[in-house]
């Protein structure tokens, strides 16, 4: 009788300590999984910008995000599997384990930091800007008060434009629909990432020459690689790679290769600064 009671008490204790031991014995689950399957699954944003787009002749994804994903896979010595994500699906895909890491132009903010972990060194700095018709009479962010603004579902700019400037968000599944809706007059302005998305449009596209961007950029925030909460080993390992890529100028070269214009001053900053630290 006492023996069975003892066994009943001990089993959970034994199980718990075994589990604890297994946790401490390995690196975190994601790194384990990557190493055992020799495959890194990366969620990349493929929306038609220089950061992520489709090559029409090969139907393969290409862009800055894709290049970074492949480079990280090369350094880890594993195959890379790319999964396309949208701003409205990226967090869920990471949380659900569908992807191991996110390279999705997802800037760091405190709210995201609560539910996810990230690689400490950023790989880009992006701020948001609003494009609006030159004739719309909107010259400052404050002019957006009470006006409808097109934006992407899941964008980090929704809260700032609502709380700080009192704009009314109209969120679309992706940036392409949002911009089309702007041209259709559903909103007075569209707020998206400045350097990756809006500046190239305003610079090179003749159809957008009636539009202008608002300054200053809001929420200039570092774009980081995201991992699930608690995956510190993965984040640390990727961090060493990212720092190295800044140091040897790989990011600046990739930015130019993908036609990101104007070259980001933040990248130049990190390229200069990082060798000094260490």
């Amino acid at each position: 009788m006492t023996l069975t009671k003892l066994r009943r008490l001990l089993t959970p204790v034994v199980l718990a300590s075994a589990m604890a031991a297994s946790f401490t014995a390995h690196a975190d689950a994601t790194l384990d999984k990557i190493n055992s399957r020799h495959e890194l699954t990366v969620g990349v944003l493929i929306g038609g910008s220089p950061f992520g787009s489709l090559d029409p002749s090969t139907q393969q994804p290409r862009g800055f995000n894709v290049d970074l994903a492949n480079e990280l896979g090369k350094r880890l010595g594993v195959k890379v599997q790319l999964v396309s994500v949208l701003p409205s699906t990226r967090v869920q895909f990471l949380q659900q384990g569908k992807v191991d890491i996110l390279i999705a132009n997802m800037e760091y903010n405190a709210q995201r930091g609560e539910i996810l972990d990230h690689v400490a060194t950023p790989y880009y700095r992006v701020g948001g800007t609003a494009i609006t018709l030159k004739t719309s009479g909107i010259t400052r962010w404050e002019d957006l008060r009470g006006k409808p603004v097109c934006i992407s579902q899941g964008s980090s700019y929704i809260r700032p434009i609502v709380e700080r400037y009192g704009a009314i968000p109209r969120a679309f599944p992706g940036a392409s629909q949002s911009l089309l809706a702007l041209r259709g007059g559903s909103c007075v302005a569209a707020v998206h990432d400045a350097a990756p998305l809006l500046y190239p449009l305003l610079q090179s596209d003749p159809e957008w020459h009636d539009y202008r961007a608002l300054q200053p950029e809001i929420e200039p925030a570092p774009s980081v690689i995201w991992v699930r909460q608690g995956e510190h080993d993965t984040a640390a390992k990727l961090d060493t790679f990212v720092r190295d890529l800044h140091r040897n100028g790989w990011f600046i070269a990739t930015e130019a290769k993908n036609g990101l214009n104007p070259p980001s001053p933040a990248l130049a900053e990190w390229h200069q600064q990082l060798p000094a630290e260490n």
């Binding site: 493929i46 929306g47 038609g48 910008s49 787009s53 489709l54 029409p56 396309s84 994500v85 949208l86 409205s88 699906t89 895909f93 599944p173 992706g174 940036a175 392409s176 629909q177 911009l179 089309l180 041209r183 449009l201 596209d205 159809e207 957008w208």
Partner: peptide, 26 residues
Amino acid sequence: SSLVGIHDLLDTAQIASSTVARSSFT
């Protein structure tokens, strides 16, 4: 399925439309 990120016809059409970025092409 294009609303959950699958690369189906509609999603590819949207990517094409924003890559080329011309009203007539859209």
